Simulated scan of single mutants.
Amino acid sequence: MTPPRPATRGRPPAASRELLQESAFDLFIENGYTGTTVDQIATRAGVSRNTFFNYFDAKGEVFWVELDAATERLKTALADQPAQPADVTDAIRSAMLVAVAPLESHHVPFILTQYDLIGSAAELQASAMSRFATQARLLSGYAQHHGVDSATARAQAYSLIACVVAAAQEWAQVGPQRGRFEPYVERVINSVLAPR
């Protein structure tokens, strides 16, 4: 069992989201998801319960640090696309690949590799769905802003989110030699979208 980290005063260092996530994952392995409390996670990370809630709304939120960061990169990448893209679909594809580009082998979602420790937690499914819906809104909003009708934009957005989920599942199953996530996403997206 890993000893608790020493307690600190005030707000913890900038890497606290990752530190809390790492502490939570260690405890989930030791005690299972349902056997781990927010207080235990905070103690392991050497912070207060209140500090935990400065970063996460609930215990299940620790699973989505990388997904939340990818969503922020997606917002930026869509904003960075040309004002009048020659091909809206290609602009969206490019933005999605930028969003996942930093994800390396060690970023594979814990929930995909350690699901037996989690079980069927409705809380986790709900928080994942809300994040995917946020990404779909970003994608469909971008497409609609560039002249795609709303039904087509939504259908395309949810299809692309499904591509990322399928790619993540494949990526997780490959094992330690999986490498970067981006090629998996690109291959699945290209199989669904019309070729360039």
Rank of each mutant, 00 (worst) to 15 (best):
F132Q: 10
P195H: 02
S16Q: 06
A143D: 04
A70N: 10
V188M: 13
E30P: 03
T43K: 10
L97G: 05
H107F: 05
N54L: 08
L193K: 07
F110I: 04
V88F: 06
A121N: 04
A172E: 14
L19Y: 00
V165A: 12
G32Y: 00
A91T: 13
T76V: 12
T43F: 00
A14Q: 05
S94N: 11
L138M: 15
S23C: 03
M129Q: 12
Y184L: 07
A86Q: 04
L193S: 12
L27Y: 02
I29Q: 14
Q169R: 12
A162Q: 06
S150Y: 12
L139D: 06
G10V: 00
N31E: 15
G119Y: 11
A172S: 15
N54E: 13
T37F: 00
V100G: 08
A157K: 09
T51L: 12
V62K: 05
A77R: 05
R187Q: 14
N50W: 04
S48N: 01
A101L: 06
G46P: 05
G10L: 10
E186Q: 15
L103I: 07
I29H: 15
R196V: 00
A168V: 07
T134D: 14
Y55G: 00
E182L: 13
A151N: 04
D90V: 09
M1C: 12
A42G: 08
D39Q: 11
E104P: 10
A121Q: 15
Q40V: 03
T43D: 13
R17W: 04
A194S: 08
M1E: 10
P195T: 02
A126F: 14
A83V: 11
F53S: 10
G119E: 03
L67A: 05
A151M: 02
R137N: 15
L78Q: 06
F181P: 12
G119C: 07
Q177T: 08
